[in-house]
């Protein structure tokens, strides 16, 4: 890669549980070119200046969802954020907010992954279709209904941006609720009823206070805020229908 001849200073919030009581900030100077990303800078530091810096990364092309960091206070994918936009610097990099830090820029993501199965993010059918029956029919228009919500790469930037998740770690959070909406909106799916309890729960959609930061930081235009709103409508309908049933003596 072309390393370029400009330089920028980067401040990184470091924390090593084996030696630090508190996070500390370290400053590094890195060379960069027009197309150098923040990830390129982190790799340069790791390779040439300080091998003890820990961070997650993998694909380099904004699809694996590994490399989210706080960059000057904004949750961002480090592979898709460019040093040129921060000149003359310095820029400040921290681990994603709202998650416990394991080491340096690496956070514990259990708050998301442990909740994932509860949202039942798989296609649910009353009867499983046999292979011999071939694919379902689904029109391009039907597919378009979940095109944006199925684009989520689970990078968790939206959790780092969400003030509700910061205060209430039990909140299902933007990406998870978008994922629920993804399957509910799929014409092949029949599992909405199974997912309603999770949506209706105290930590479901009603914990969202419509701040909208999630959609602002999403690198994939998933628009979780809009998905949550659609879920709220479903949840309200669900509540109202149950109320009607009870009112008419139709409770189970």
């Amino acid at each position: 890669m072309n390393r370029g001849n400009r330089q920028i200073d980067i401040l990184i919030s470091r924390y090593d549980p084996e030696r630090d009581d508190q996070p500390r900030t370290e400053r590094y100077t890195v060379p960069y070119a027009h197309d150098s990303s923040v990830l390129d800078a982190l790799l340069y530091i790791k390779d040439h200046l300080d091998g003890s810096l820990s961070f997650r990364w993998s694909c380099r092309m904004a699809i694996c969802g590994s490399c989210g960091k706080m960059i000057n206070g904004v949750p961002s994918l480090s592979c898709k954020t460019f040093l040129r936009d921060y000149a003359p610097g310095p820029l400040y990099i921290e681990a994603l907010h709202h998650f416990p830090v394991i080491k340096d820029l690496v956070v514990d993501q259990a708050g998301f992954f442990d909740k994932l199965p509860e949202s039942r993010p798989w296609l649910i059918r009353d009867q499983e279709r046999a292979l011999a029956d071939g694919p379902h029919r689904q029109s391009p228009r039907q597919r378009a209904r979940f095109a944006s919500t199925s684009a989520c790469i689970n990078c968790l930037l939206c959790y780092a941006a969400c003030p509700q998740y910061g205060m209430k770690p039990d909140f299902a959070g933007p990406a998870l609720l978008a994922l629920v909406e993804r399957y509910n909106a799929d014409s092949r799916d029949q599992g909405k009823a199974e997912r309603m309890p999770m949506i209706n729960a105290e930590d479901g959609v009603w914990s969202c206070t419509l701040v909208g930061n999630c959609s602002a930081v999403c690198p994939k235009d998933v628009d979780p805020a809009a998905a949550i709103n659609r879920n709220k409508l479903e949840s309200a309908k669900d509540y109202f229908l149950r109320f009607l049933k009870i009112g008419s003596g139709g409770a189970e």
């Binding site: 798989w122 292979l131 071939g134 694919p135 029109s139 597919r143 979940f146 799929d186 092949r188």
Partner: peptide
């Protein structure tokens, strides 16, 4: 092809033709 159909049954959002088939 069977594997593609299996994925379709699991929800893979294959792009579709106008008639709704992958």
């Amino acid at each position: 092809a069977d594997e593609m159909v299996r994925l379709e049954h699991w929800g893979c959002p294959w792009s579709r033709g106008a008639d709704g088939s992958p």
